[in-house]
Design a binder for these strands. Sequence first.
DNA 1: TGTACATCAGTGAACGCGCGTTCACTGATGTAC
DNA 2: TGTACATCAGTGAACGCGCGTTCACTGATGTAC
Lengths: 226, 226
Amino acid sequence: MATRAEQRAATTGRIMETARRHLADVGAAGLSLRSVAREVGMVSSAVYRYVESRDELLTRLIIEAYDSLGEAVEAAVATPAGDLDRWVAGAIALRDWSLRRPHEYLLLYGSPVPGYAAPTDTVQPGTRVIRALVSVVTGAVDGGRLESPPKVDDLPDELSDDLRTLADIAELPQAPELLLAVLLGWTQMFGLLGFELTNQTRGVVEHHEQLFVVCAIQTGRAVGLR
Amino acid sequence: MATRAEQRAATTGRIMETARRHLADVGAAGLSLRSVAREVGMVSSAVYRYVESRDELLTRLIIEAYDSLGEAVEAAVATPAGDLDRWVAGAIALRDWSLRRPHEYLLLYGSPVPGYAAPTDTVQPGTRVIRALVSVVTGAVDGGRLESPPKVDDLPDELSDDLRTLADIAELPQAPELLLAVLLGWTQMFGLLGFELTNQTRGVVEHHEQLFVVCAIQTGRAVGLR
DNA sequence: TGTACATCAGTGAACGCGCGTTCACTGATGTAC
DNA sequence: TGTACATCAGTGAACGCGCGTTCACTGATGTAC
């Protein structure tokens, strides 16, 4: 045992784990290969055996974070329950994960890291969360349980087209109102979460969890879930 | 003319303006006194005649940004029009300003800058935007034009209390539903805007402005504005 | 109005720091015959 | 099973960089009498 491959995997793991912890201390912009190496207990040049560059390390952290968050929401959504309950469970999982790992949340959804451009590898894992939430809607549609959303009368044509295209991609009924509701629900939750994480609501709201749940229920209902 | 005081004001202006431009290039985390000094055309130590430290520069930038944004929204909201139109105008002003100065938006509402803690001076200017929006609601209330919001049945007691306290501060009627709607409308718009600015909706939505307006109309209606 | 002194803006050198990345190297672990 | 060679992990020194901040200084602008 302790073959070379195992050693390598273990060391890579230690590097990534340490990097994640530093991220939490210092934010993405402040993350440095040298300090990670220091804490792992190797000389700075040695980490280059495991990681191509600082940018690649960031990319890996992003992908891991997306996957971890995606997994959490997928699991929450998978519980057998009413459609609305599943939606809310997904939302709560999103919030719980984000509170546990705020700097990773900010890495994914906060300000871009100066000097770093995320490669396209990060796009696909980035869609897991929204796809999990959409799957709840799809389930309700397939079961014939989705209430059709109320007509929105101020909807411009071009926007309707955008939304219909999106509906196709998401394999949802083409009513633009439905996709509008999903999109707004999605951004609503992120707006609230972002405010909570960056302390914009400091001193203003005490019971963030309750607020978030109420928000999730409202957005779920707006989508037509019951 | 060109008295010392005038010179000083002019130079301070150039420093701040350059800093703002660098912010746009490089983000808050990457902003450096030395590079600002370089571009202004003075030696790095000279800027210390105008700015106490890098942190103080950031603080000033934050305050200036809050004030500039606050002013824009206040102006938009001040147009004589229907309540809902004023709300929407405020929202559009928020978006326009943010698109014009995305890095300042991120400085205010994005990830915290590593190693920097905003002093309390920034709190008060930070409330101008929300107070401008609330003033629209107050106007509608005073004119007896606000539709009372529908009862929300899942509202937990503690959260209701939070919301009632907030209502008192904002000098709005105590119905917790009203403040909930304002709060959710507020965060909704920031969520959407944040997604647009950080390109989360890349390739997914084309007509961001229309989407944002629709969103603003919906949130305004949910608040009870007509 | 003119002079003597104080204030101020900007210079240039220096401090100590941490960063990402490269490179030639040593010694241990694996592989082929 | 034993030996010869190839691969690999980690070292240590070095590169060039930009950063924030301090300090003693010079020369110009203001002020008091």
